[in-house]
Design a protein around this nucleic acid. Structure first.
Length: 563
RNA sequence: UGUCCCAUGGUGUAAUGGUAACACAGCGGUUUUUGGUACCGUCGUUCAAGGUUCGAAUCCUUGUGGGACAACCA
């Protein structure tokens, strides 16, 4: 049944791809079957742009009761590695998608592709060209002028056949010749001007080793692989639009029945303040502008995972930006909104003081320890509560005290009262200052015993509420404050300037914080809201001896904005 | 001086010939033991010109602007 008809209530708004598939299903195309594939080349790590493709490929299959294959597009041994295969699989699973037993490789089809190539030669539709890359390129013409035919274009079939064999035996050197499809050198579409089908590459392949010396090009592998797997919808990004006629040409000459896969293109993901190209990301890693592919500032899935982004936040973000044919640039603040939205519901609240200032309660007994019961998450009633030790000496945030506060400052200052969240209302009676630096070193307060959190008399209202940590119980932690990697909205958009010039010198600040003792058992990837500060997760570097937290994203802060 | 694709508030997306709307961002407010959350309000939109039609964001024509294509990469 149609997805549209399926919903009696409000008609669901489908993106143009879902509408297209819906229509095809209704018309009984391919017997109503929907089968997609996600086809990464294992030559690097996945980034959030790939996540957009993954969500579409797996999402369409899910929506229409079909299947989605994982297929590694491994037709170029020079760049591909097994560890990339493993990383890619891990990232897709992390996002929450599963290809079940359908893990395929373009290299699975080398035999069949070879046979198809031989067939095309025999049909006079392909030939061996012995010219150099430069000659072929020169004859190809330009987008505005037609190409010229190769002198080898009409060589005898037997000759091409024999040479094709030699391309794969190692008898011929790399670059000695290529196999080309005989299409149309005058086509206005450059991809139709006798495209190269096979080239020689003697580098061992990560899966097939040295068995092959001649490898199919993307254009000669992709559509056919789709056909072999019974793919109905081959979804790819906009820049492949001009490849589609060639995709169809090969499939048309290959197919033996009515079934054919259909390629449809959608817009790539672009984000403000971010670079997404694999080459640029590689450069950031190799030139040590970041610590690696999984640096929390990278838009890679491994980096975002380490930064504290949840799969749901990424999927929700992608859902909101949609799929169109318009080359859009999405605001990174929508991504930040998505992760705050998700973590607000899921992240346990904890007290962590990022820039500590000592606060002493002069009327609180020296050795007394009260265990304050504090709820873990006001947004989740099932999250329960925990006990946090409260004592005479506490750390508060340095920003939460001002000697001469302005009118709109609701926090602590001389003679002012605030609530220590989950504790007491305290009043500032004085403070100590370092004469040389002029820096406040201690703040002295008295507490009001009647105002203990939860007590009947505790409802007295004060302007501000501060988070705190007991000095004697505090744990030390390294906190990595991450900010956007680039200062410019479009780092690649300046002709006269290299994108590296826009790197934010303050994209990482490492500080030492005091955190509440319950965090002693926190494990890598656990996420928290540091009350009043932001969302943080435990870094993969973190150990029991040395806790390390990453700032995923700060809380919205209308006070900071006002300043 | 080519072919193909695209154009809706600041950003992104919807409206499938019938009242231009939603989210984010911005601004203002209510609630709040997080200056968070939630909630309310507010700002602001069909690239241009013609045509078809009772009626056009939607269809047609022309123009303007943006993008893709000249790897033995994918």
């Amino acid at each position: 049944m149609s997805v549209k008809e399926n919903t009696n209530e409000a008609k669901e708004n489908l993106n143009f791809i879902a509408s297209m598939i819906d229509e095809a299903v209704n018309e009984g195309v391919n017997n109503g079957r929907v089968h997609t594939r996600f086809p990464p080349e294992p030559n690097g790590h996945l980034h959030i742009g790939h996540a957009k493709a993954i969500c579409l490929d797996f999402g369409m299959a899910e929506k229409f009761g079909g299947k989605c294959n994982l297929r590694f597009d491994d037709t170029n041994p020079t760049k591909e590695r097994t560890d990339f295969v493993d990383g890619i699989k891990k990232d897709i699973h992390w996002l929450g998608y599963d290809w079940e037993e359908r893990e395929f490789y373009a290299s699975d089809y080398f035999e069949r592709l070879w046979a198809f190539a031989v067939d095309l030669i025999k049909r006079g539709l392909a030939y061996i060209d012995e010219q150099s890359a430069e000659e072929i390129s020169a004859q190809k013409g330009t987008p505005t002028s037609p190409g010229k035919e190769s002198p080898f274009r009409n060589r005898p079939v037997a000759e091409s056949l024999a040479m094709f064999e030699k391309m794969n035996t190692g008898e011929l050197d790399e670059g000695a010749c290529v196999l080309r499809a005989k299409v149309d050198m005058t086509s206005p579409n450059m991809h139709m001007r006798d495209p190269i089908m096979y080239r020689i590459n003697k580098m061992p392949h990560h899966r097939t080793g040295t068995k092959w010396k001649a490898y199919p090009m993307y254009d000669f592998a992709h559509g056919q692989s789709d056909y072999f797997e019974g793919i109905t919808n081959s979804l790819c990004t906009l820049e492949f639009e001009v490849h589609r006629p060639l995709y169809d040409w090969f499939v048309e000459h290959l197919r033996e029945d009515d079934y054919r896969p259909r390629q449809t293109e959608f817009n790539r993901l672009n984000l403000t303040y971010t670079v997404m190209s694999k080459r640029k990301l590689m450069q950031l890693v190799e030139e040590n502008h970041v610590t690696g592919w999984d640096d929390p500032r990278m838009p890679t899935l491994s980096g975002m995972r380490r930064r504290g982004y949840t799969p749901d936040s990424i999927k929700n973000f992608i859902n909101r930006i949609g799929y169109t044919k318009f080359e859009a640039t999405n605001d990174v603040s929508l991504l930040e909104f998505a992760v705050r939205e998700d973590l607000n519901k899921k992240a346990p609240r904890v007290n962590a003081v990022i820039n500590p200032l000592k606060l002493i309660l002069t009327n609180y007994p020296e050795d007394k320890v009260e265990m304050m019961c504090i709820e873990n998450n006001p947004e989740d009633e099932n999250a329960g509560s925990r006990e946090v030790p409260f004592t005479r000496e506490l750390y508060i945030e340095r920003d939460d005290f001002m000697e001469e506060p302005p009118k709109k400052f609701f926090r602590l200052g001389p003679e002012r009262e605030v609530r220590l969240k989950g504790g007491y209302i305290v009043k500032c009676e004085g403070y100590k200052k370092d004469e040389d630096s002029g820096e406040v070193t201690e703040v002295y307060c008295t507490y009001d015993p009647e105002t203990k959190s939860g007590m009947p008399q505790s409802n007295r209202r004060v302007k501000g509420t501060l988070h705190w940590v007991s000095v004697g119980h505090a744990l030390d932690a390294e906190v990595r404050l991450y900010d956007r990697l680039f200062l410019d909205e479009n780092p690649l958009g300046h002709k006269d300037k290299d994108f590296l010039e826009f790197i934010n010198p303050e994209s990482l600040k490492i500080i030492h914080a005091k955190v509440e003792p319950s965090l002693a058992t926190a494990k890598p990837l656990d996420y928290f809201q540091f009350q009043r500060i932001g969302y943080f997760n435990v870094d993969s570097d973190s150990t029991d001896e040395k806790l390390v937290f990453n700032r995923t994203v700060g809380l919205r802060d209308s006070w900071a904005k006002r300043k």
